[in-house]
Design a protein around this nucleic acid. Structure first.
Lengths: 226, 226
DNA sequence: TATAAAGTGAACCAAACAGTTCACTTTCAG
DNA sequence: CTGAAAGTGAACTGTTTGGTTCACTTTATA
């Protein structure tokens, strides 16, 4: 059971900073440039594919400067991933109005979820982190917890409310949340991941989400009173 | 290890052979060893992570021999992927008895699909090929077509029959098939991919598939005649 | 403006790695 | 039994890359 106490702490910025100061990471004038450059190159080329020289060039910074900030490539990589997770959290954190109908709430949530996953960054992060997970297992786990896992928990939380309100009938909240999330990706995700499609139109996302909501309601809606 | 002296006649695998003869790929006594070694190492370490020396060692073959077969590392990699796709196809190709009930058929199909994806190989191939897709886009597409795409097509085909038999009511077959496949992975896939879980019990697969079938039927079953 | 901190760039090192070569041995079909 | 084909292993080449160093320039600030 995910405990999921309401996660509305005011995680105001410091944002990117939060995870940084940990291991031998020093800061300086061009810190953000380095981060930005590394983000670009890592996301484009993966961990092995990205050379430190490329990153430094992209960042508009000398390699010496880069190594003045980060003790090595791995730490830099972790830092980027941690930062990106925080961004993702922010995106998920958007409040959902509890006065909406079930369908409206699910639709909104679904579009957020699908929108994130289908975004260029979503795809790349997914590919990158799942692929590099053998080398950085704790990193993959962190990503899951702060990304997909968090979305899952929030959804369970909302579904729980809806059940208590009598709007839904769900015995296995965990499964139901997961089902909904998977449904939102239907007909889009794998094709994108394997580069059968290059972009996804708003329309296709909506079709997918509408399908997900319909299916979810067909299964979990409270039957009309006899 | 070199007791394999005598097994060279069998030449069983008419199938995997198909893709091989294409580009500068020559064969010889130890061809299968090389393939097997490469499969192991690539799957474990990815494309960059695998060194040709490692592969040769794992295969119990000298590097010179390896390069006598394959002109370079990329061709070897492609060859492995093509071969694995064929295996996957075989697995999917298992006939489904048309006299089964809808639920039974979906359950069987679901368990096949989920079983494959959750297998060690399924995970690794997915991670590897989606991750390496930037470098080998056509490879990723081939994998999709011969793997997930093929499963999808077969499912659409079966669903079509079920609709014609009046067992189901589906307007968007494509979407429905995709939904079902996604549902089968619910609560298992992402956790596995990001290494939150190491193994998946038969039970958990069944729970997932049962959930998928229930949901699918709730949405697409033909309502009882009034 | 003086001065220390931050940043530069180019050279450099060592390790890893793809791919080649070659003299030598093993295998096996005729 | 023999000779050609297949395989060996170890050394070697050339390149890439992570990481270091250092003399020098830029920037900020008190």
């Amino acid at each position: 059971m995910p405990l999921c106490a309401d996660l509305t702490y005011g995680r105001e910025n410091g944002g990117a900073m939060a995870e940084a100061a940990e291991q031998g990471v020093r800061r300086g004038r061009k810190f953000d440039q380095v981060l930005e450059g590394a983000r670009t190159i890592f996301l484009r080329d993966g961990f092995d594919g990205a050379s430190v020289d490329d990153i430094a060039r992209e960042a508009g910074v000398s390699k010496a400067t880069l190594y003045a900030y980060f003790p090595d490539k791995q730490v830099l990589f972790r830092e980027i991933c941690a930062q990106e997770c925080l961004l993702q959290v922010d995106d998920v954190e958007a409040k959902i109005d509890p006065s909406m109908t079930v369908e409206a709430m699910l639709t909104l949530a679904g579009e957020r979820i699908a929108g994130f996953m289908m975004s260029d960054f979503g795809q790349n992060a997914f590919r990158l982190i799942s692929g590099e997970g053998a080398r950085f297992p704790e990193l993959a786990r962190d990503f899951y917890r702060n990304g997909p896992g968090l979305i899952h928990d929030r959804l369970v939380h909302h579904l729980h409310h809806l059940v208590q309100n009598g709007a839904l009938q769900v015995d296995d909240l965990d499964l139901a949340a997961e089902q909904f999330i998977q449904l939102c990706k239907a007909s889009l995700w794998e094709k994108l991941l394997f580069r059968m499609d290059h972009q996804v139109t708003e329309d296709r996302v909506r079709r997918s989400v509408r399908g997900a909501v319909e299916m979810f309601m067909a299964r979990y809606a409270v039957p009309p009173k006899a």
